[in-house]
């Protein structure tokens, strides 16, 4: 046995050093890899809940209608009935949380209307569009087209 390692002691020590290196690496791996890693796949399982914990800014139309059912009724039968409230009124989850404290501002009528209805060749032909100079007067859009039920009856 001794003969076998004769003149090789330095190599044995080097191998030993490598062994210690591997051991330390294994130890680090045990200590430092996050617990939930590999729960669902090659990632931290906990990160799913972390991403999901982000707060909501848009409450969703359901929350609006809960209190403002009158507006929802006013929209019945209109083309605008399918539009989410926050499409025009902006993100209002904060208002839903504290209805009295955070009052939403009324949307800027014409700007909002034209965002969708200004004529543009890239828009689908079937979509109602206007060119400002050909369309009516200088009156605000809502004087003829109530925002929640824009059809002129």
């Amino acid at each position: 046995m001794k003969e076998l390692f004769k003149d090789k002691e330095h190599l044995v020590r080097m191998v030993g050093l490598f062994g210690i290196g591997f051991l330390l690496f294994g130890l680090m791996k045990i200590i430092l890899v996050p617990n939930s890693f590999g729960l669902y796949g090659h990632y931290r399982g906990d990160s799913l809940a972390e991403v999901a914990a982000q707060p909501v800014a848009y409450a969703g139309r359901g929350a609006c209608i809960d209190c403002h059912s009158d507006i929802d009724e006013a929209r019945t039968g209109s083309k605008h009935a399918v539009i989410g409230c926050e499409a025009c009124h902006g993100p209002l989850a904060a208002h839903v949380a504290e209805p009295e404290k955070l009052k939403p501002k009324l949307p800027d009528g014409e700007k909002i209307c034209l965002r969708c209805h200004l004529a543009n060749p890239a828009r689908p032909v079937s979509f109602p569009q206007i060119t400002l100079k050909d369309h009516s007067t200088d009156d605000p859009c809502t004087s003829c087209h109530p925002a929640h039920h824009p059809e002129i009856s």
């Binding site: 004769k6 003149d7 090789k8 002691e9 330095h10 190599l11 020590r13 080097m14």
Partner: peptide
């Protein structure tokens, strides 16, 4: 760097060369 091994006999160097 010697790892505490002082051996530089012919045979040990020959082994080093082989490795």
């Amino acid at each position: 760097m010697t790892l505490g091994v002082d051996n530089i006999s012919e045979r040990s160097l020959a082994i080093d060369d082989k490795v």
